[in-house]
């Protein structure tokens, strides 16, 4: 009896844990897989499994100028927001990372707060603010709004990298006569670059995907990709959206694997 109990105990515990995690992992992957499969349907509906196979919806995508226009806008706004986030975010992360002062801690919480506050409320606040100061909504207001919600990712990842940087390296560099700027350029920057890159990558993806801020801060002429897709989905279930989703999933996986190679993204985030 005493010898049997542990085995049953181990079996049930491992069974439950592994069972639950396998269900979770399948559910995490399934939606992307299903979209990829459905996007190759020959039919006009999102029936699963598809009645036949074709690449017609990808060809259709080639002619979908509305979606392409929206994708271009989203890309431009995401690129500017990411650039601005990296410049402002890295500069802010440098002093905050090692400082224990109260003002540094307060700044840190302020810079992180867009992560938990409802973005839709911030979008509305931004619209009210720009209309109060008389600045009409445009790509500029979009970039400003996106930068506020994307900069936390850059700040957080850069601070995490800086925290792992051994200060002895900086002291060595200084004792060998390097100026502060040289030390920053030759020692600090190369060592925290993976952190900056992964922060920038997440910032770019979250800007490209942003709906709540864009809804309020864009002008009528600036259609953004996720909003276009969302509105298309509210109206009718278009298979072209499946093909577009397929392109986005493959592009995301490709960049993720590249970032995993360059920066070790998975270790960085866990």
């Amino acid at each position: 009896m005493a010898a049997r109990r542990p085995t049953l105990d181990v079996l049930t515990f491992h069974g439950v844990m592994i069972g639950l995690s396998i269900i979770a992992l399948i559910v995490l992957v399934a939606p992307s897989a299903v979209v990829l499969i459905v996007s190759f349907t020959s039919g006009f509906s999102l029936k699963f499994p598809p009645p036949g196979w074709s690449t017609r919806w990808y060809v259709e995508l080639w002619n979908a100028w509305q979606l392409q226009f929206a994708a271009k806008n989203s890309f431009v706004v995401a690129a500017w927001s990411t650039g601005l986030s990296i410049v402002l975010g890295v500069a802010a992360a440098l002093p905050i990372a090692r400082s224990k002062t109260l003002s540094a801690r307060i700044l840190d919480s302020v810079f992180m707060s867009p992560l938990v506050l409802p973005a839709l409320a911030f979008g509305l606040a931004g619209l009210m603010f720009f209309s109060a100061i008389g600045l009409p909504v445009s790509k500029v207001t979009l970039v400003i709004g996106h930068t506020v919600v994307c900069v936390p990712f850059v700040v957080r990842n850069t601070i995490a990298s800086l925290a792992q940087l051994d200060p002895v390296l900086l002291e060595c560099s200084a004792s060998l006569g390097a100026s502060r700027f040289t030390t920053f350029r030759r020692i600090t920057l190369p060592l925290v670059k993976p952190g900056i890159l992964s922060g920038g990558f997440i910032a770019f993806m979250s800007s490209f995907d942003n709906v709540p801020v864009s809804l309020f801060l864009r002008d009528a002429a600036t259609d953004m990709l996720p909003i276009r897709m969302w509105q298309d989905l509210e109206g009718r279930l278009d298979v072209t959206i499946a093909a577009l989703s397929g392109v986005l999933i493959v592009a995301t996986v490709a960049v993720m694997i590249l970032m995993e190679r360059v920066t070790g993204l998975s270790r960085r985030l866990a």
Partner: peptide, 22 residues
């Protein structure tokens, strides 16, 4: 970790759209 990160980095509209299909 990559399986966990994939949904985080895929567009929310795409992920939600997948659930409509499912």
């Amino acid at each position: 970790m990559l399986i966990v990160l994939l949904p985080l980095l895929t567009s929310v509209v795409v992920r939600t759209f997948a659930w409509i299909v499912i």
